[in-house]
Design a protein around this nucleic acid. Structure first.
Lengths: 205, 205, 205, 205
DNA sequence: GATGAATGAGCCTTCATTCAT
DNA sequence: CATGAATGAAGGCTCATTCAT
C-alpha cells in the first residue's frame, strides 16, 4: 500500500509515539557517548534518519535532552510521591525509595546516565533550572527520611545525615552506569543487597 | 666558570613546577565544566595565559588531561600499594584503603572528578588505555579484599562481592564531586563515617 | 511507483558532477596561490560557497588535492598507456608522448601546476605515496623510450639518457606554468615546436 | 678561552659572515621543505639556534628569503652581464649563458630552488617586486639572444622565440631541483649535454 | 647574542542549525 | 516527513613575532 498510513488512533497519538521512539534511540547514544560528544548526526543515525530530519521533531539538540530528562524526572517523582504519601515509617520509606530508585534505573537507564553525567553542565543554562530544583528536592526528601529515622530511634544518631544522604544518593544513581538489564541481578535484587549493606553493615556479627 | 649559569634549582625544576602550576589550574576547570565542554582558551585563561601559550607547554588538550590523570593514578596506586603490602587483615585493609581514597580525593580533587566524569569517554582512545587497566586493577584489588574478608569470616557471606565492590567504588569516588576542602568535614572524618555506615550499618541496634 | 523518484541522471551523477565542479574551482586556486598558501576559505570562495561547506563534500583539504592529482594522473597514464601499447618505434613514441603530455596540460592545467609545485611536499605523507610511484614509473617509461631510440640508432648515443630524461620531463611539465588556453599557440603547436627543438636542434643547418 | 672572541677583522666582517652562515643553513631548509611549509623554529634549528634568536639577525621570515634571493640574483646578473658585454655572437652567448646558469645552480642550489618554487607566491608582495623585474629582464635577455641568433642565420627561423625562450628557461632552472653536487655530473658536463641537445638535437644524423 | 616563555592572529575542521525540494 | 546541501560560529592548534632576562 502506497498512501502514507493515517493511524486509526489518529495523528496525535502516532506523533507522540514516534517522538518517544526517537527519544529512546537518542537517549541511548547520549548515554553511551555523552551529550556533548554526540553529534546530532549520530543521534539521528541511531534513530534511523538523517541529521536535518530531527529538526522536524525537535527544536534543538538541547530540547532533546530536555525532554529526555524531564520525562524521566517526572515519572521518578511520581513514584517517589506515591511512596512518601503512604504513611510508612522511616526505615520502610527508605527501603521503598531505594527500590523505587533502582526500578527507575531499570526503566530509564539511559536517562539516568545522562542525568548523572550531564546535570552539572546542563544546569548552567536557565532552561535546565529544574535540574537544580530537583536536586534540592531530592536532598530535602532524603535528609528528611534519614532525620526522621534518627528521631524515631530507628537509625543511628552518631552519623551526619548530610554525609549519609550523599553516600546513598551517589551509589544509587551511579548504579545506572554499570547496570545491565540482562545482567545477573535484576533491580529488586540489587536494591535488596544494597539495603542489606547500608542498613545492616558489611560486618559479620 | 664559563658556561652560562643554570640556576641550582635549575631549568628543569622551574619548568616542572610551572607545568604543575598550569596543570593545577587546568584540572580545576576541566573538573568544573567538563573536559569536552571546556575550551582550551578557557583552560588557559584559568591559568592566566592565552590559549596558544598552553601549547608551549603541552602538545595538545588531550595531553593535558593525560598528565593530570596519570599523575593522580600514579600517586593513588603508590598509596594503595603501601596499604596492600602491610600485611593487614581484610577489615583493616578495607579501612585503610577507604582512608587512602578519601585522602586522594582531598589531595587531587579535580583529578578525581575528571577521572570520574571523563574516563569512559577518554578510554575510547588508545592513549588512555591505562584508564581501563587501572579500572580492572581496582576491581581485582577491592574484590580481593572483600572475598578475603568473607573467607576470614569477618564479612557477611550473603552479599555478592561484585555488587558490593561497585557500591563502594562508586560512593568513594563520587565523593570528589561534592567534597569541598573547606567544608565541615575533613577527609579522615568522612572516611570514618563512611566506614561506619558500610561496616556497621545505618540501623540502630 | 511508490518510492520517491530518484531522477534518471540520479543523485550519484549529480553528486559526482558537483564534486567535479567544486574540484575544478579549487584546483584553480591551488594552482595559482599554492596549496599551502591557499586557505580553505579562499578555496571555498572560489567555488562560491563558504569554508565549512566544503567539508560536506570532502574530508579535508588534503583529500581535495588528492582527488585533483589522482584524477589527473589517472587520465594521464591512461593516455600514456595507449601510446605505449601502439607498437610505435622510439621516435614516434617520443613524439606521441610529448603530444599527449601537452594535451594533458591543456586539459588539466591546474592539476599539472599543482603536481609540479607541491609534489615534493605532499609526497612526504603516506597518503601521497602514489606521487612518488608515478614519478618512478614516469622515469622508467621515458628512459625506456630514450634508450630504445639509442639502440635503434634513431637517437644520438653520446648523450646520457638520465640527463636527457630530466630535461624533457621538466620542460614538458613546467610548461603548465605558463600555458594559457587562450594564448597564441594551442597544445599541438607547442608540442610540434618543442619536438622540433629537442629532436632537430636549434641550430640552423 | 672564555671571553667571547672579537675577530681581528672586527665586528662588521664577523657579523656579515655570521649572517651568511645562518642564511646558508636557512636557505637549505627553505629549499627542501618549501618556504611556507618551513617554520621559523625549523629554520633556526637548522642554523643551530633557537627560533627567537633569529630575530636578532633578521627582521622577519620574509627578510630571510629576501636576502637569500636578492643575493643570488645579484651574483647571477653580474655573471650574466659579464657574458653579455663580451661581444660574443649569439650561439657563443647562448652557450656562455647556459654554462653560467648551471654554474649558478652549482653555487646557489638552495637559492635557485627557492626562486623556482616560491617566486610566484612571493611576487605578490610589494617587497618582492624585483623578482618580477628580474623575470622580465631575463626574458628580454634570452629572447634577445635567440632573435639575434635567428637574424645572424645561426638559429632556425621556423621556431617561435617566445616558446623556445620558455623551454630553455624552464629546463635550466628546474635543474636545480634535481642537481646534486655529489652526483655523476658536474655543472660543466650538464651544461655541455644540455647544449648538445638543444642546439644539435636528439636525432642521430 | 641567545633563551624561552608568551602573544595573538589565523588556519583547518566540526557541528548545530536552516531550508528548498 | 525526510533529504541533502549549505551556513556560520566556534574550537583546537600552529606559528611568526616579541621581549625580559
Amino acid at each position: 500500500m502506497c498512501a502514507r498510513r493515517r493511524d486509526a488512533e489518529g495523528t496525535a497519538a502516532t506523533r507522540a509515539s514516534r517522538r518517544a521512539e526517537l527519544l529512546s534511540a537518542i537517549a541511548g547514544v547520549f548515554a553511551d557517548r555523552g551529550y556533548a560528544a554526540t553529534t546530532v548526526r549520530e543521534a539521528a543515525e541511531a534513530a534511523g534518519i538523517l541529521g536535518g530530519s530531527l529538526y522536524y521533531h525537535f527544536d534543538s539538540k538541547e530540547s532533546m535532552v530536555d525532554e529526555i530528562l524531564s520525562t524521566f524526572l517526572g515519572e521518578m517523582w511520581a513514584d517517589y510521591e506515591e511512596v512518601l504519601s503512604s504513611g510508612l515509617d522511616a526505615p520502610q520509606t527508605l527501603r521503598a525509595l531505594v527500590h523505587s530508585s533502582f526500578r527507575s534505573i531499570e526503566k530509564h537507564r539511559a536517562a539516568v546516565v545522562i542525568y548523572q553525567n550531564e546535570s552539572r553542565y546542563l544546569a548552567q543554562a536557565e532552561r535546565f533550572q529544574y535540574l537544580t530544583a530537583s536536586q534540592e528536592r531530592f536532598e530535602r526528601t532524603w535528609k528528611g527520611v534519614l532525620e526522621q529515622g534518627v528521631a524515631e530511634g530507628a537509625f543511628r544518631a552518631d552519623l551526619n545525615t548530610g554525609l549519609i544522604y550523599r553516600f546513598i544518593r551517589d551509589t544509587v544513581w551511579v548504579a545506572a552506569t554499570w547496570y545491565r538489564p540482562d545482567g545477573k541481578f535484576d533491580a529488586e535484587e540489587i536494591a535488596r543487597q544494597y539495603l542489606a549493606m547500608v542498613l545492616e553493615g558489611l560486618q559479620a556479627d
